[in-house]
Amino acid sequence: MSRMSRLPLLALLATTACGASQADDSAGAGAAPAPAPVGAGGAARPASPAAADRPVANAAPDFSLPDLDGNTVSLSSLRGKVVVLEWFNPGCPFVRYAHSDGPLRDLAARHMASGVVWLAINSGARGKQGHGLDINREWRAKWNMEYPVLLDDKGEVGRAYGATNTPHMFVIDPRGALVYRGALDNAPLGKVPAEGHTIYLNDALAAVAAGRPVDVAETKAYGCSVKYGN
């Protein structure tokens, strides 16, 4: 429940430009910086300073996290793009279903083809299920994930977003506003309800692409709990 109370805090965190961005230092360490798959190489600035001055309602908290090759990906460098965040744990049965038989088999590829930036984030702590470079590399390859898996093993980014589940999905619009948070779809483990299969994420992305407000901006996520440290 405390998660819900964090919602106003999210905006605050982002507008005061603190929060997870300190993770930058540790994130960059360890590997030679190379252009990240999403093009998050340098210190990109928002396209328009005027737009940046105006506070964005429900702003998505900024973050910088390392991918599996040690490249740092920063949300701030992606301003102007639609960004999808997918909370990830390769050991979670819901993630395994979604990637092997469920909607995540091809959803990312389809939306990335129309310019959406897709990022998986693993907030599992050291020693918890799904933590570690090897296992994430293995399953990213096996599931043909052509987008980065970012490691947040301190859980700072996960907590800033209030990510509770894997998978837990977030959509950020080109202005940096969080416009959708919640479940991938309404069919946990493929169990489609009587009213039919709805992939909330598709609806949210379609609305953003059309410049419309997202009808269903928040749903209840389902899945494994994010394996945060204590």
């Binding site: 050991g91 049965p93 279903y97 092997s100 469920g102 799904g130 296992i135 293995e138 399953w139 483990l189």
Partner: peptide, 16 residues
Amino acid sequence: GSAGEPATSPEAPRAP
């Protein structure tokens, strides 16, 4: 079935 480990070929990596 679907809820479990995806069908793997022998050399495929295994989830925990």
